[in-house]
Design a protein around this nucleic acid. Structure first.
Lengths: 236, 236
DNA sequence: GTCTATAGTTGGATAGAC
DNA sequence: GTCTATCCAACTATAGAC
């Protein structure tokens, strides 16, 4: 679908500035937008640099000029989205810890601080579908770069939230918190990667697409909070 | 790297049967094994057919002879693992429904029927690492084939478990069950895809690799059962 | 900064010998 | 059924004009 009309006639517009060729300085941004969309849809290896640059209305060499390599373009794409999320999470957690003083942290608020920034990043009008699977691929894509990038970008966040959860659930063994946090991450990745939108939806069952982000986020927090509070009977 | 040593001298072994060239009829199996491992490690587009056939000790043309295309090889790879899981889930659910008669279904048993078969398939000695991400990629890989295959293979399972969960939680609105089931799927995918093994593990925190499958499965059931039972305050 | 042109690899798929 | 040899398309990356 994308990338049809290979050698289309010049647009019927009077001058040269067709649909492409806007301000020259935002070529970098357009490349990042196109890369985000195509890497998310087809995977890193599945989306060729040519397809990305064509979707961005520019050329392969422009991409190499701005980023140096296809891999570096992927890193820049992920970093652009991940960093605001990391900052927003940290800011929310700062505020929660400030209000709590030396006392225990309220669990639901900690979870909200962890989950809401992803929804808000995803919810930007132009980006809702672009952002869809990019986070999920962070967790299932093989490229070596992505593994180290994941650590670099999310490492400190994971540490802070482990400690925050330990403060929210003081009685709970750390091993159990660490394990449950992985369950929480699984829920987050699955939901934010957009799978709610292509669920088979059996006959007679309600469809989930209509749910607002707020409704999903709210229920997600209820769900994982209950899971985190569930007493353990197994696990040693 | 692949396909080096173009005209290597014959192996110093006495006869012909080197490390490759075993029983000719299990070439198909060896191809499936290699494809499973490499598709899981590098993704479908990231693993070349040449790399797969080389790992299987055979040739590209053998793969085309047996499967017809790279895409068909992927489908066969997934199908080989998915079908036993689907059958085992159905069998366990049959048994639960038989024992329950007309009464409500016990939630933890339904969850066990859903989750345990995946662990057992993954736990086969030779397959534990091969199977790792293959299920997860079902949910994040872009190829069109995979989407339709997912429906074909797991569609009926999803329907049956939705109904089973409705029978286990009779008071619960269906919309909420459908949403919570997606959370459950997220947990399942994340855990079975092996991410527990490459968690950063912050300083002072216990590592999760040592946990047995039984311990993880047991806690997972506790976690999602509590989530499923959590009353809703949000969601309309 | 952005383009055209091209280098140099590697990809999936096939033909035909055995 | 499995191999070798080959086709051709697509890929990343670079060089050099403008």
């Amino acid at each position: 679908m994308t990338g049809s009309e290979p050698a289309a006639a010049p647009a019927p517009l009077p001058a040269a500035p067709g649909p492409r060729r806007r301000h020259p300085e935002d070529t970098k941004e357009r490349l990042l937008d196109a890369a985000e969309r195509l890497f998310a849809e087809r995977g890193f290896e599945g989306a060729s640099l040519r397809a990305v640059t064509h979707a961005a209305g520019t050329s392969v060499s422009a991409a190499h000029y701005h980023f140096g390599s296809k891999e570096a373009l992927l890193v820049a794409t992920i970093r652009r989205r991940a960093e605001p999320v990391v900052r927003a999470r940290a800011a929310r957690l700062d505020e929660i810890e400030r209000r709590a003083g030396a006392g225990p942290l309220p669990l639901e608020e900690v979870l909200d601080a962890f989950l809401r920034p992803i929804f808000e990043e995803r919810a930007r009008p132009e980006r809702s579908d672009d952002f869809r699977r990019i986070a999920a691929r962070l967790f299932s894509d093989p490229p070596r770069v992505v593994a180290s990038l994941k650590r670099e970008v999310f490492g400190s966040t994971a540490e802070r939230f482990l400690d925050a959860l330990a403060r929210a659930l003081p009685e709970k063994p750390r091993m159990l918190i660490a394990l449950d946090l992985q369950f929480l991450v699984g829920v987050m990745v699955h939901v934010t990667s957009g799978h709610l939108r292509d669920v088979p939806a059996p006959r007679g069952w309600p469809r989930l697409e209509g749910l607002s982000d707020d409704a999903v986020l709210g229920r997600m927090i209820e769900f994982v909070a209950a899971g985190l509070r569930a007493p353990r009977r197994s696990l040693r």
